[in-house]
Simulated assay, not measured.
Amino acid sequence: MKTYEIAVVHGDGIGREVCQSALSVIQALPGLTDAFTFKEYPAGADEYLRSGSAFPDATYEGCRRADAILHGATGIPGVTYPDGTETGIEFGLQLRFRLDLYANIRPIKLRPGIQSKLRDRKPGDIDYVIVRENTEGLYAARGNGVNLRDEMAADTLVVTRKGIERICRTAFELSRRRSGAPGDGKRRVTVCDKANVLRTYAFFRKVFNEVAEQYPDVEADYAYADAMTCHLVERPEHYDVIVTENMFGDIISDLAAVTVGSMGMSPSAEIGKEHGFFQAAHGSAPTIAGQNIANPYGTILSGAAMLEWLGERHGDQRLLLAAAAVERGVSAAMRSPHGLTRDLGGAARTSDITELVIGNLLPAASDAAE
């Protein structure tokens, strides 16, 4: 039986609390006691204040060697470089570029027990995935922009044919594995861009269309980014898979997460050919750190995504069953009268949610095995 090495980076703010919650759930899974070794590494704003580096070389090497990386959250708004940008987020951004984690996959799903912020929406109405290109676009300009005499600043938005092709192909392949949009059951990939304004996005759409021709069984769909912010509120049932540039993916996935409960509900998997990085889509929320009130569901679900990715990558049925067990354990916890944290309208603490999910792992594991 293979033993998997997991690099664990807790990070800043609530990062340690939610990451520990996910670790506790994984470590409680029956039959997987010897399946993992967990190695902790520092990164983020606190590490920058301590050592002068938000992403130490030893942390990078540990992440590069590991079978997968599990992360809490990094970044503290007041801890910045001289140019005003945050130090803590250097970890996530640089890891994406250095390990070529080109596909940021963020499922948006309204689950039983959770009340949507959208009126009259119920579980089953919202179930789509945002596929965000993760290594190009405007964010790739970080650290390379120009500030000229404090009078003018510029960053460059760059996309490549290779980058667009592979992220669009990821989106179409994902749609093929899904059951289609909740509204009409159609497998559909929607490109979200500003092709009507900028050449970079017009090029993105052109390459998207070329890839779409290779998937005649999946409908190609289009939305401008500004209109998409309306569509995700007004008709989320239309969407199956959405593919988009880096910055737009960041923005619309935050909006989408709130429609299914809160930012704390949004897991993510950042995938390349060789590496996988798993974290919730929310930030470090330093104002509530240490109070045991953070919502850990997003990080727990990111842990489930990590198990699934490892299981598929290595053909390990144990991990696939474990991922299903965590998913079902989370669903059972959310349906509990005590399974909602403050951001979801409840009063449960972080530790309460962790215990609820763990308490539901055994029956969930039994269901998954049947």
Score class of each variant (00 low, 15 high):
Y239G: 00
K186F: 04
K186M: 14
A225P: 06
G185V: 08
A223I: 12
V129A: 13
V158W: 07
S175G: 04
T229G: 03
V233I: 15
R132A: 13
M152P: 04
P236I: 08
A141V: 03
H238P: 00
C192Q: 08
R188P: 05
D125M: 04
D226E: 11
G163L: 01
R161L: 11
A153C: 14
V241L: 11
A223M: 14
A212H: 08
D193N: 08
E173Q: 09
A141M: 07
V191P: 03
L148S: 12
D240T: 07
V197T: 11
F204Q: 04
T156S: 02
E133N: 08
A220H: 03
Y222D: 13
R199G: 15
V189E: 07
C230W: 13
N209R: 12
T229S: 11
R149M: 15
A154K: 05
C192Y: 01
I126K: 07
Y139G: 00
V207C: 06
T200V: 05
D125A: 04
V233N: 15
E210Q: 10
S175P: 01
D184I: 12
A153D: 10
A225L: 07
V197I: 11
A225C: 09
V191T: 13
K162S: 13
R176F: 10
G185W: 10
E219M: 09
D127W: 02
V197E: 01
R235M: 07
I130N: 06
R178C: 04
G137F: 00
M228W: 12
Y222E: 06
R187V: 01
R187Q: 12
I126F: 06
E213R: 13
E234R: 07
Y224W: 11
E133L: 00
V146R: 06
I242F: 10
T229K: 00
L157D: 06
E136N: 01
Y222T: 04
A223L: 09
G183W: 08
N134R: 01
Y201W: 13
D155W: 08
T170V: 10
V211G: 06
V129D: 02
T135H: 10
I164F: 03
R142E: 02
R199Y: 14
G145C: 06
T135Q: 04
V218Q: 03
F208I: 03
G145E: 04
G137Y: 00
G145S: 13
Y201P: 00
V233S: 12
F172K: 14
Y139D: 05
K162I: 02
V243Y: 03
V131P: 04
R169M: 12
D150P: 07
H238S: 13
L157R: 01
T170C: 11
H231A: 12
R142Q: 12
A202S: 15
V189S: 09
A223F: 09
D125Q: 09
D125E: 01
D184P: 05
E210D: 15
